[in-house]
Simulated assay, not measured.
Amino acid sequence: MLENLIKFFVYETKGHITKIQLIKFLYLADIYSVKWTGKQLTELDWYYYKHGPCHEDIDTVL
């Protein structure tokens, strides 16, 4: 699911998206999914770093 979400955000922005923006969109997608359905879209265990949410698996997928 993570790869599909990344592709979706890249296609929707026509490639004009930074890595930080992508990470924040993924985090927001998970937050709203939990709010509406009770479960995350991705299986990432988010943690906060200097500039917001982060996870190592995103670098691997990119």
Rank of each mutant, 00 (worst) to 15 (best):
M1V: 00
M1S: 01
L2V: 03
L2N: 02
E3K: 12
E3H: 11
E3M: 09
N4R: 13
N4A: 07
L5S: 04
L5M: 08
L5T: 02
L5I: 04
I6D: 12
K7W: 06
K7L: 10
F9K: 00
F9S: 02
E12N: 15
K14D: 09
G15V: 06
H16K: 11
H16I: 14
I17W: 09
I17G: 06
I17R: 09
T18W: 05
T18I: 02
K19F: 07
K19A: 12
K19G: 03
I20S: 15
I20M: 14
Q21I: 00
L22D: 00
L22C: 00
K24H: 03
K24N: 11
K24M: 10
F25A: 11
F25E: 13
F25H: 11
L28S: 14
L28V: 13
A29R: 05
D30M: 10
D30L: 05
Y32K: 10
Y32A: 01
Y32H: 08
S33L: 06
V34H: 05
V34S: 10
V34C: 08
V34M: 03
K35L: 10
T37M: 13
T37K: 14
G38V: 02
G38L: 05
G38Y: 06
Q40F: 09
L41E: 05
T42L: 07
E43Q: 15
L44M: 08
L44V: 04
D45Q: 13
D45L: 00
D45Y: 12
W46G: 04
Y47Q: 07
Y47I: 07
Y48K: 06
Y48A: 06
Y49E: 00
Y49T: 07
Y49G: 08
Y49W: 00
Y49P: 01
K50M: 07
K50G: 03
H51P: 00
P53A: 10
C54L: 12
C54D: 14
H55R: 14
E56H: 05
E56F: 01
E56D: 12
D57P: 01
I58D: 07
I58W: 01
D59P: 08
D59K: 02
D59C: 01
V61L: 05
